[in-house]
């Protein structure tokens, strides 16, 4: 358990440092990010969501790197070089055992387990609710979606996402709008967006709530815009898809309470989608992507090249903090 505690503490410390930097940079990142085309923007949003976890994992790798390397390659132990009778990050030496390290590790484990349990519970409840919806509806094999009571248009379900469309929806909106809705939902299905969202939520568990919500919101917007673009290609007119968004929002005002599927969402997402369909102005992100890739590669190479000094530095720091 203590080895796990130490790994988790190091990983969370690295993740926390990355969260602080990300939060500081967020205001400057969102506006330029929204000018990137939706497809690449999904990857950017995922990278930002995963960055703190990645930094935490890198921190753990840096801390244990030299020991892992010497163990795997059968080399002599490098841990004695920084002195001291006991060590935090040496797999061959007696572990420096402190109550603080134990307590911190237990807290992290309990927190991760509780978040995963909450996520699993949500998945189970969703499956149950979707099962009840399917029992009330019928599968339209020709058009490839479930026709259910109500006025909804969603794609849901794990591991296999399916499209659910309300019976009343087809009569409430124009046929052009209905076709746009179906094309959009099928695009989510083909892109496997729900799996991506679940992965995004899992890798971003360590982010503070406000930061996580903001970045997940950007990911959602990018996915919606990507599916709007696919729907526009499929039906041949981006403005029809834009019109269908507004027609559906207006129609929702006339839907009886309890029928319409209503979620909270920022109004600027609707505006961003309409504007993107009416007049898309995407900036190329190739240069920024190359720069980021180069930075990540250099960081990893640097951590590998200087693993022993970094390991010694981490060992000394932890001895001071937790010793």
């Amino acid at each position: 358990m203590n080895l796990l505690s130490v790994v988790l503490v190091v990983a969370m410390a690295g993740a926390a440092a990355a969260c602080v930097l990300l939060r500081a940079a967020l205001g400057r990142v969102v506006a330029p990010l929204r000018r990137v085309a939706p497809g690449p923007r999904v990857r950017w949003a995922l990278a930002l969501l995963a960055a703190p976890s990645g930094v935490g994992a890198l921190g753990a790798l840096v801390a244990f790197g030299p020991c892992l390397r010497t163990l795997l390659l059968g080399m002599s132990d490098a841990c004695r070089s920084h002195g001291g009778p006991e060590f935090f990050f040496c797999l061959r030496m007696p572990m420096h055992d402190t109550p603080v390290a134990w307590a911190a590790g237990l807290v992290v484990v309990a927190w991760v387990v509780s978040r995963l349990a909450m996520g699993t519970h949500a998945l189970v409840r969703t499956r149950s609710a979707l099962g009840r919806l399917r029992r009330l509806g019928t599968f339209d094999a020709e058009r490839g979606f479930w026709l259910v009571p109500g006025d909804i248009a969603i794609v849901a379900g794990f591991p296999r996402a399916q499209v659910y469309v309300g019976e009343r929806l087809e009569s409430c909106v124009s046929s052009a709008t209905f076709n746009a809705v179906i094309a959009h939902e099928r695009a989510h299905q083909r892109r496997r967006d729900l799996r991506t969202k679940l992965v995004a939520r899992a890798v971003s568990l360590c982010l503070p709530t406000s930061l996580r919500t903001a970045l997940l919101g950007e990911l959602d917007l990018a996915m919606e815009q990507a599916c709007d673009a696919i729907a526009a290609d499929e039906i041949g007119d981006a403005l029809t898809v834009a019109g269908s968004l507004l027609e559906l929002v207006r129609a929702a005002a006339t839907m009886p309470e309890g029928f319409a599927l209503a979620f909270s969402a920022p109004l600027d997402h609707l505006e961003a989608r309409v504007r993107a369909l009416c007049a898309p102005e995407w900036s190329p992100s190739g240069r920024a992507a190359s720069a980021c890739f180069a930075l990540c590669a250099m960081t990893i190479v640097g951590c590998v090249a200087f693993d022993l000094p970094l390991h010694d530095m981490t060992e000394s720091l932890f001895e001071r903090l937790l010793g």
Binding site: G119, A122, L123, R125, T126, S128, A129, L130, R132, L133, L136, G150, I152, A153, I154, V155, A156, G157, F158, V181, H184, E185, H188, D193, L194, K197, L198, A200, R201, L216, D220, M223, E224, C227, L245, L248, V249, R250, A252, A253, M255, G258, F259, A260, L261, A262, F263, S264, A265, L267, H269, L270
Partner: peptide, 23 residues
């Protein structure tokens, strides 16, 4: 059933065509 799915959207297990609360 749909009411139960409302919370699911926040958990990322479904995607709606439009967020009708902007009505």
């Amino acid at each position: 059933a749909v009411g139960e799915l409302r919370g699911a959207q926040a958990k990322g297990v479904l995607a709606a065509f439009v967020d009708i609360a902007t009505r």
